[in-house]
């Protein structure tokens, strides 16, 4: 972003990478896949790089409002300084926070989730799919992220993206408004669960495996981790893969 700004360019969108997108070994592949799609399509975009900080979502959900607002206000200062208008992010938590919670602190942007953005690119014919590639005709199930689904009522965009791959989309028993959480929301990602009889991600992975799908599609970094761990817990990691939507599209596009 800094480079573009200094050379007088105004990118169409700011791609908000998020902490998982920047640091999580597995999830960095999603960031890379999404960026490759943007480059291929020729979308003018920028990232904040080292100027990006956590949106503060986990701090806020864990009750630390001071820390959340410190993060939020700093991020807003940076984005406002660059006159950012439109933000795209692959993380539903970043999406929810920037879209719904930053306006109260002076950050007003058009915020869209990458599933919505990818859907638009497909609809506009900018992403030309090769007919599903390795996914063609395979059973795929989509795991709804709470912060995309119930929190912001985005249910169809990710499904449209999957359908565009010419696959068989199968639904889990609990899906859309009734979708079961992966277990990581509300800052649970950052601590061990409370004592119980089962881990939430295992419960959800069992449900996903019961569909007979060979790929579990997700649209959230935390869900990606939790579902992958759940599948591993069931020792199915060789048969069933967990992918982000952007990775699936990039694979199909051969990039």
């Amino acid at each position: 972003m800094a480079e573009m700004a200094s050379s007088g360019q105004t990118p169409e969108i700011l791609f908000w990478v998020g902490c998982a997108g920047s640091f999580d070994e597995r999830y960095k592949a999603v960031t890379q896949a999404f960026v490759k799609i943007l480059n291929k399509v020729g979308v003018s975009f920028a990232v904040l790089g080292p100027e990006e900080a956590c949106t503060g979502d986990p701090a806020r959900r864990a009750g630390n409002e001071f820390l959340f607002q410190m993060q939020a206000v700093s991020n807003i200062q940076v984005m406002n300084a660059y006159e950012v208008k439109k933000v795209v992010t692959a993380c539903p938590h970043c999406f929810n926070t920037i879209k719904n919670e930053y306006p109260a602190l002076g950050g007003n942007y058009e915020v869209i989730h990458h599933s919505q953005f990818l859907q638009q690119l497909i609809n506009e014919g900018k992403i030309v799919l090769q007919g599903g590639g390795e996914f063609k005709g395979k059973k795929i199930t989509f795991h709804d992220s709470c912060y995309l689904g119930r929190a912001n009522e985005v249910y169809e965009a990710p499904r449209d993206v999957i359908r565009a791959l010419d696959v068989e989309l199968v639904e889990m028993k609990r899906c859309k408004t009734k979708g079961l959480c992966c277990g990581a929301g509300g800052a649970q990602m950052f601590k061990e669960p409370e004592p119980g009889k089962k881990d939430i991600n295992v419960e959800r992975a069992e449900e996903a495996l019961a569909t007979g799908a060979t790929t579990i599609a997700v649209g959230c970094p935390f869900c990606l981790t939790m579902m992958s761990d759940g599948v591993k817990n069931k020792e199915k990691e060789n048969d069933v893969k967990v992918y982000d939507l952007a990775e699936m599209l990039a694979k199909d596009m051969g990039i």
């Binding site: 701090a59 864990a62 630390n64």
Partner: peptide, 25 residues
């Protein structure tokens, strides 16, 4: 959670990575 708060205060991320590594991907 307190460790997560600390990371966020010092490294601006819930995980303890140097902020300068944000663009390494």
């Amino acid at each position: 959670w307190n460790s997560m708060f600390q990371n966020m205060e010092t490294a601006f991320s819930p995980w303890k990575f140097p902020p300068s590594d944000r663009f390494n991907w």
